[in-house]
Amino acid sequence: MSTSTSPQRTHRYLRLAIGGTVVVILVAVLAAVPGFGWLSAISDYFYTPARNAFVGALIAASLALLALSGRGAERVILDAAALFAPLVALVPTVIGSASVPGVDVPCSPCVPPVARPDVANGVVTYLVVLAVVLAVALVLRTLGQAPGSLFSIILGVIVLVLVTVTGLIAPEAFLSFAHVSATVIFFGLIAADAVLNAFWRTSSRTPPRWLRITYIAIAAVLVVDMIVLLAATFARRDADGAAPPWILVGEAVALVVFLLFWILQTWQRWDEDDPASLLPADRRLPPLRRAQATVDR
């Protein structure tokens, strides 16, 4: 009978939980379809009863990503993803007058006035919590308890200042662009993590060639998908929101590809004696063009 250590089980559960957050979002959207139909974007379901599950899942994913960030370049990437996931959740997408049945949008396209107090509350809470986390991280780093956290702390400070200043000086611009910007950055970071795992060692075992090629393909799909999503988002920005669900399809593709990446990562690292997120990532993997054994030399 196999045994596992407590850190290993915690590592496994966190990884499973991140995959589960995607399932939560998709199920919540499907549960809202009978009452609201197929909207033009998954993000539009923020204005339906799916909102609580949508927001809760992204906040949970942010915490799990932060816990799994590990060391080296992957630490910076996943810490950054953890920074932007709450913004995707708390700042909704702008919608048009015909985007969501029953939602009055007098300033189409925009974040409706009825949702703005909730957004303000969520963003203020996010900023306060982020400031506390950064303060704790700085103290721990000063005490030598958080080595390698400098870049993550600097990035956190930049996001804190940028969100605060933009929210105060240009609130309408912030509401118009924060969601789509945070979404593109989040999935771009996941694409970067996939590339990192294809070419640099982030686990105690060398991944098989097919898995590394799959990581490259995942990164390519995410990048192309984000470009298409950006084009589709700005193409409908002056419309009333009653558009074909191309953005919904693009967002669904991004979520499914992210889920696939996370399943493969979980499978790759499941049986490691020491969780991969605790290992340094300072060795480049062999070139893909060479036949390579799947174990370390």
Rank of each mutant, 00 (worst) to 15 (best):
P112Y: 04
D274Q: 13
A178Y: 04
V195P: 05
A32W: 00
V55G: 01
P275N: 10
V124Y: 03
L278I: 04
I25T: 01
F199P: 02
A82T: 10
D282F: 02
S69A: 13
L160H: 14
G102H: 03
S2I: 11
V224D: 12
L14Y: 09
A232Q: 15
S40Y: 08
T206G: 01
F54L: 06
S69N: 09
A243E: 14
V165A: 10
L155Y: 07
S43H: 05
L279Q: 13
Q8D: 12
F46G: 02
T202D: 01
V119M: 07
G250N: 12
W270A: 12
V27G: 02
D225V: 12
S97L: 07
A81Y: 02
A217K: 11
F54S: 00
S108I: 08
G122T: 01
A242L: 15
D296P: 00
H11I: 06
A82L: 09
P86I: 08
P86H: 04
G241L: 12
L260M: 09
P244H: 11
A232F: 13
L278R: 14
V228K: 14
L130Y: 03
P244Q: 12
L83C: 08
A239Y: 09
P34W: 02
S108F: 03
I185W: 08
R201V: 00
R201M: 07
A239D: 12
L211K: 03
V124T: 10
L65E: 07
A192Q: 10
L87S: 03
R75P: 05
A198S: 14
V129A: 07
T93R: 02
V249G: 09
G96D: 11
F46E: 00
L264H: 01
G122E: 01
A276L: 02
F84N: 08
V249A: 13
R15C: 11
A85M: 15
R284P: 01
D44I: 04
R116I: 03
L255D: 05
R205W: 00
S40H: 10
D238M: 15
A219F: 09
V133W: 06
